[in-house]
Design a protein around this nucleic acid. Structure first.
Lengths: 264, 264
DNA sequence: CGAACATTTGAAGCGCGTCAAAGCCGGTGG
DNA sequence: CCACCGGCTTTGACGCGCTTCAAATGTTCG
């Protein structure tokens, strides 16, 4: 449940390796690039703000961060979560300004990978370039699913889908055993991510608890029956494009998630 | 207002040229690749369905298409529009299955660019590769904005923002003179894109008309005062990342759109 | 002219928001 | 050890924005 031996860097390499078959040289190059100082952001502080001109890519080593956008009048939408091993979009390198902010939800340890390093890497190691493309396209797919989540699902389905997504993503980086995980979000955070109010999130959580789909006390979320929550939320995990992960480390929930959906 | 001399291919080249400075050789290579047969999809037919295994990238030559996702029970969310000159995500090349469908809203003329052609192009012409990265990141930015649109804005703001986005995008490809454009969407389409019902879209359109922000008769939408609609909708065009377009072809609305927002 | 589809309108209901106050919990300092 | 404080969660009452259902009115095109 802690990050311990998950060095963040290792997690990145493992993940990229799932997107494209990396050679030992590729991995060594990544390894070398990741000899970077670890930076710290305190909970509830912004790592980078909308409109800023970034010069690096952020790689989360431990803790949770979120991407969010703010309307003029203060309304705030969380458009994605960054979990350990996640990196922010290459957005930073290519576009001139941030179109969203990144904020720390918990204390966050992260690395700043300078743009030049990434450009060199993709130039000299085409497989790494391909893996980055893959990752980017998965981000895009996830963002489309969030759009659908907000546009079509009701409160219970929205919240349930979000909790399912987090379960699978945390599992892929070893931060969930498949049944429960540490959820460091406040109900206000959940509200901002689902487009609901914190009051309604509270009531919806109670509803999910009452129907036995989740239990949540303190910061530990438990999903006793993943398939049940998935069905109640109309959650279809295909959009995470994690098929190849499942093939390799196939046990329990993760496989079931997609198997349920292979039938059509 | 028609597509006439806008050959779709030319539009693609012009657009990519805005993302990275292409050499004459780059442009020639693109030109050559675009000697492909033009395919036709009839209005209301799918071009490719969710779950399919694609082998090409689609480039819209004329007409409107949309990307959409469907929940098990039939609810449908339009997650993006593809206008002339737009291409679908490289999704198709890298990921194994479509996580969304692409459907023709009007009759659509399009080209299928085989994956190999694009791989060769990016390998031999790094600037084109960079331009494609850019385009992809802009797609991602737009998708984040749609997420925010659905999560935080009310009906009028949602619809207004969408109409603003379409105005700017159509203008960039020469399909709007800045004040009005052809809107081939039904109210049901607008509903599916904004996460509202068609009944409520109808009422919201009337409200926009009553307040003089738009006029819409037949399929022609007119925005007499873009700044007013923009303000009423809390529309902030930065997310389209079209700064460089404005710098080059600066006149009227397009410039104003961003200028309004440069002040902060 | 008629069928299929899009727009418009009305009436009624519900999901979620708003407002406000009351617990609750961890942390801090006296 | 208790008093206190700020932030999070929980609860209740009420209201509104949007949905639902149903039917009428265009509109387009064989």
């Amino acid at each position: 449940m802690h990050d311990g031996h998950h060095s963040g860097g290792m997690m990145l390499i493992r993940r990229l390796g799932n997107y494209a078959r990396l050679t030992p040289e590729d991995e060594a190059a990544l390894q070398q690039m990741l000899a970077l100082p670890i930076r710290l952001a305190h909970a509830r502080r912004d790592i980078i703000a909308e409109g800023a001109v970034p010069r690096a890519v952020f790689l989360i080593v431990s803790g949770w961060a979120c991407q969010f956008k703010t309307l003029e009048d203060g309304r705030r939408q969380i458009v994605g979560f960054l979990l350990p091993g996640d990196s922010c979009d290459l957005n930073n390198l290519v576009l001139r300004r941030m179109d969203h902010s990144i904020g720390a939800l918990t204390d966050v340890r992260y690395m700043e990978i300078p743009g030049g390093a990434i450009q060199r890497l993709t130039r000299d190691h085409p497989r790494i370039g391909k893996a980055l493309w893959w990752q980017m396209l998965v981000h895009l797919s996830v963002q489309r699913e969030w759009t659908t989540n907000l546009g079509q699902r009701n409160a219970m389905e929205r919240l349930g889908s979000l909790l399912c997504e987090l379960a699978l993503r945390l599992r892929d980086v070893g931060l969930s055993n498949g049944e429960c995980y540490d959820l460091p979000l406040t109900q206000t955070d959940l509200a901002d991510a689902t487009g609901l109010t914190s009051v309604h999130i509270n009531r919806t959580l109670q509803q999910l608890r009452a129907s036995g789909l989740i239990s949540l006390s303190g910061r530990v979320l438990r999903i006793p029956n993943f398939a049940a929550l998935q069905e109640a939320s109309l959650f279809a995990p295909d959009y995470l494009h994690r098929a190849q992960l499942e093939a390799r480390q196939s046990h329990g929930m993760a496989g079931a998630g997609a198997a349920d959906h292979a039938e059509r």
